[in-house]
Write a protein that binds this DNA or RNA. Structure first.
Length: 585
RNA sequence: UGCCUCGUGGUGUAAUGGUAGCACCGCAGAUUCUGAUUCUGCUUGUUGGGGUUCGAGUCCCUGCGAGGCAACCA
């Protein structure tokens, strides 16, 4: 599991940290953080960030904090907070460090509100911030447009004493939402809009999910985030590209904290947090924005946040993807500043790569048609006379001898998949067809003699004979049989439900017609449920246990709905299949 | 438009002034009691132009293209 140094990409963030470590800027410890806002479930895009944040800390022997960035009480909840923690743990990561409470490595931004408030007051005393009572519309107008400088707020030169008085009144609930705000005093002519006296605090008479009514003013991201990083002793603060233009403001806040003597010191080194930005993950055939995912859930387009088609971490978990495969995917897509679009085929490859090594093999028939072995039990005296009269033994995983073997009943009547039979076989069809020999996996060689059809012409039963000398699967005379198909004994097979998933969208870029047009591209066939049979041992498997159904795909026992009386399996991903129907010789 | 950022095969990513490599996808073949796995081979690339240099994907200028910012969201 442990990766050697050369296995990991030496991307620009890693080189950045290496340099800081070499030049002694970290005080002997690299500290990163993953700072989600608890207003939704995390998805594969967050998983990339988790891998970067926790991964870089681990690589340098440092620590990564989990910090819930809960500075906007309107949208946040404990449900989201708890599930974020669960998902990160499931991905295989554990936060570490002091923490701000009982739990090591865990922080709430809201636990720093007192200190943020104190920093704001000091800014006011130093004439670096002021209270402003422009309306939002006025403030937008005063700020100007990017290519033209803005105009100063009428309150820009209010004396610190008066600002302090108003700010305290804001805190004490004397004003309504939006009546006043606290702004940094920077540069109304800056070409960077974020420098034109950005808002630091706004009034929000909304209870916070943790602090209740303690506050009615809440800090803005640009003010809160660098303070959180700095106070936690974070050395390397990594985020996505859209925050690049915020970096000068981030640095401005850190500079003010430095002036106020608030930067932590570690081993004699003053820790000055720095921000760098990398490209967020995009994957074709899906959407990644929280808002759009929420819309899919609330409009019932999917069954919930953990619908197996969702790119959420809990969705991928329900689908049967493994944490290791997701981590491997994040490693392989790399880290850069180029806004790329990754191919879901790579994620699927990572899943197959792991499951091929670890998943036990089983046989399952998803679209059953009955096969009757006409000469079963009629030949020599040692055969049984009915189904289930014999057992075959097959390895649980041919790649891993230690996985052992299992015994599977076999008898006169079996189920096979409808797609493994053709009444009139095309060229290069190696499966079951009249007059053609095929091997029944692990059991024997079978020769089809014909089939029975119903009034509509649909095949309802296939008939044939077995070669009694081929028990175990090999012909006594050594003749080759090209095709091997899987089966389930009809007498002992267990009925099961299979949920077959495909891409959620039919279009590589579901947002190509804008953020409101994505529903048009929903794949109507993205979820299909079928009933078939599995070999008996499968009924008793545990929820979330993963298998390879031979020749079919990887499946997982559903985390919610599977039970021994009514097995339910989700298709994780199909097996690669180089058979091309209809191909000419 | 003002500022910031980014352009390497179909996709993602290396090469940090010195032979453009790896992976996924795709295609072909070998092996195979899973048309899986494994193995072998193949196709496809530095955004255009100019400059610096013995030598440029890399440095400089310029064009073209893409993305971000212009919330009292994060």
């Amino acid at each position: 599991m442990e990766k050697s140094e050369s296995d990991t990409s030496r991307h620009f963030l890693r080189q950045w940290i290496e340099k800081d470590v070499a030049e002694g800027r970290t005080g002997g410890k690299v500290v990163t953080r993953f700072p989600p806002e608890p207003n939704g479930y995390i998805h594969i895009g967050h998983a990339k960030a988790v891998c970067v944040d926790f991964g870089m800390a681990a690589l340098f022997g440092g620590e990564c904090h989990l910090r819930l960035d809960d500075t906007n009480p309107a949208k946040e909840s404990d449900e989201y907070a708890e599930n974020i923690k669960k998902d990160i743990n499931w991905l295989g990561f554990q936060w570490s460090g002091d923490g701000d409470g009982k739990e090591p490595g865990f922080y709430n931004a809201s636990n720093m509100f007192d200190r943020m408030y104190a920093i704001a007051e000091e800014l006011i005393r130093r004439g670096q911030a002021y209270c402003c009572n422009l309306t939002q519309d006025e403030w937008k107008e005063y700020r100007g447009v990017p290519d033209k400088p803005g105009r100063p707020s009428p309150s820009r030169d209010t004396a610190p004493e008066r600002n302090l008085k108003i700010f305290r009144e804001m805190r004490d609930g004397k004003y309504a939402d939006g009546e006043w705000c606290l702004r940094a005093k920077i540069d109304m002519a800056s070409p960077n809009i974020h420098f034109r006296d950005p808002v630091l605090y706004r009034i929000r008479h909304v209870p916070h999910y943790h602090l209740g009514d303690k506050w009615c003013i809440y800090p803005m991201y640009d003010f809160a985030h660098p303070i959180e990083d700095a106070l936690e002793g974070v050395t390397h603060s990594m985020c996505t590209l859209e925050f690049e233009v915020h970096r000068p403001l981030y640095d401005w806040v850190v500079d003010r904290m430095d002036e106020q003597g608030l930067l932590p010191v570690r081993n004699g080194v003053k820790i000055r947090t720095q921000q760098r930005e990398f490209a967020r993950l995009n994957i074709t055939y899906t959407v990644m924005s929280k808002r759009l995912l929420l819309q899919l859930v609330t409009e019932g387009r999917v069954a919930g946040w953990d619908d197996p088609r969702m790119p959420t971490v809990c969705g991928m978990r329900r689908r049967g993807y493994t944490p290791g495969a997701i981590r491997e995917f994040c490693e392989r897509i790399g880290v850069s500043k180029f806004e790329s679009e990754s191919d879901p085929a790579l994620l699927e490859w990572c899943v197959r790569e792991e499951l091929n090594k670890t998943a036990a093999r089983r046989m399952a028939v998803l679209d059953p048609v009955k096969v009757v072995i006409e000469n079963w039990g009629t030949g020599n005296g040692e055969q049984g006379t009915g189904s289930g009269a014999r057992e075959v033994e097959l390895p649980n995983n041919p790649l891993d001898e230690s996985a052992g073997t299992r015994k599977i009943p076999f008898g006169r009547e079996i189920w096979i998949d409808r797609s493994d039979f053709m009444e009139v076989p095309e060229k290069k069809f190696f499966r079951m067809a009249p007059g053609q020999e095929v091997r029944l996996r692990g059991a024997c060689i079978f020769k089809c003699t014909g089939c029975v059809k119903d009034a509509s012409g649909r095949v309802v039963e296939i008939r044939g004979t077995w070669d009694e000398g081929s028990w175990g699967g090999n012909a006594p005379d050594g003749r080759k049989v090209k095709g091997t198909i899987h089966w389930v004994d009809a007498a002992t097979g267990v009925k099961a439900e299979f949920r077959l998933y495909e891409k959620l969208f039919t279009e590589p870029d579901p947002l190509k017609n804008g953020p409101d047009g994505f529903l048009e591209f929903l794949n109507p066939d993205s979820a299909k449920t079928v009933e078939g049979y599995v070999e008996p041992s499968l009924a008793s498997c545990a929820r979330e246990e993963r298998f390879q159904f031979e020749r079919t795909g990887y499946f997982v026992a559903d985390a919610r709905d599977h039970n021994p009386a009514a097995p339910v399996f989700n298709r994780i991903v199909v097996l690669k299949d180089s058979y091309k129907p209809g191909e000419k010789q």
